[in-house]
Design a binder for these strands. Structure first.
Lengths: 151, 151
DNA sequence: TCATGATTTGGTAGATTTTACCGAAATGGA
DNA sequence: TCCATTTCGGTAAAATCTACCAAATCATGA
């Protein structure tokens, strides 16, 4: 499905999402037209789900972030669906994963300051029905924030 | 520093990192040349740190991922620096955050399968000097994997 | 209020890139 | 081997980027 040469393209487009088709073709060693078609195919098949500018969090004014461990009281679809639906529409929640281990979910939340984080908890998180437990792990330092899959 | 109109640009480029300058200019309501200059300034000032294609993890053949809670035995700069240096160069580690709470670090690791994850632990993680504890939280479901800051 | 220097703006044109199409080459079953 | 299908490289028109210009805007002090 995704083969050798496609992976080269994906690796490069992960590194530079605005590389021109010509640069790309040269790097992966094919003609511009063949390369262009493959990129298009990767987009249309959904392997490439989109493109994004990567914005430096602090420089853009988002000083505070945290990883939340969240557990639900009960795991009926009702509560789970409600939780998922609410989390999906809060833009401060950049990531949310259902996980094994002590917590049911891991969330990464990014806000402008501690005040905003406090509001996030009070006005959003603590009001979700069926929440058993929320533990905040404040992010002291971002060692690494990558998006590129390790081809 | 980063003002109103810049935020509109950033929001849009986060949504579509390959939007043409013309689309962008129209959306944020300025001339193409003014818009182009602002984007360029955002890039050069480092507010935009880069661009990336977003690749669908599963479709690209990475079936397994996990969130690791890692604690160090001791927190001398020596051990910390060594840990950070090693983590930085492992591409399976997409994210690494130093956090408050029970664990010193939260890592998100993406690999092709469980076998690869097992190797990752044995050959890499467990060999880092000064590790006190590693807890694996397997990701059962990706509810949300966003990169866009909530402007 | 006005003058002045600095900054930012919109428009433009040449250079570059994208994108769709072509016939040729490669591929793979029967 | 033959034929159908896919994939290839090349090409040209359309779209876009990018660097320049002069005009408009802004900030400041007289």
């Amino acid at each position: 499905m995704v083969e050798e040469q496609d992976e080269r393209i994906l690796a490069e487009l992960q590194k530079d999402g605005r590389a021109t088709n010509q640069q790309l073709a040269e790097i992966v060693g094919m003609s511009t037209s063949a390369c262009w078609r493959r990129v298009r195919a990767l987009e249309e098949s959904g392997v490439i789900s989109g493109y994004s500018a990567l914005v430096a969090r602090e420089r853009a004014g988002f000083a505070t972030s945290a990883i939340l461990h969240v557990s639900l009281e009960r795991h009926d679809v009702k509560f789970v669906d409600e939780f998922v639906a609410r989390v999906m529409q809060r833009r401060e929640v950049l990531e949310c994963f259902a996980t094994t281990g002590d917590a049911d979910y891991h969330l990464r939340v990014v806000v402008r300051d501690m005040d905003a984080y406090n509001r996030f908890l009070d006005e959003f998180m603590f009001r979700i029905p069926g929440i058993r437990h929320v533990r905040t792990n404040v992010i002291l330092k971002e060692i690494k924030t990558g998006v590129a899959l390790p081809f």
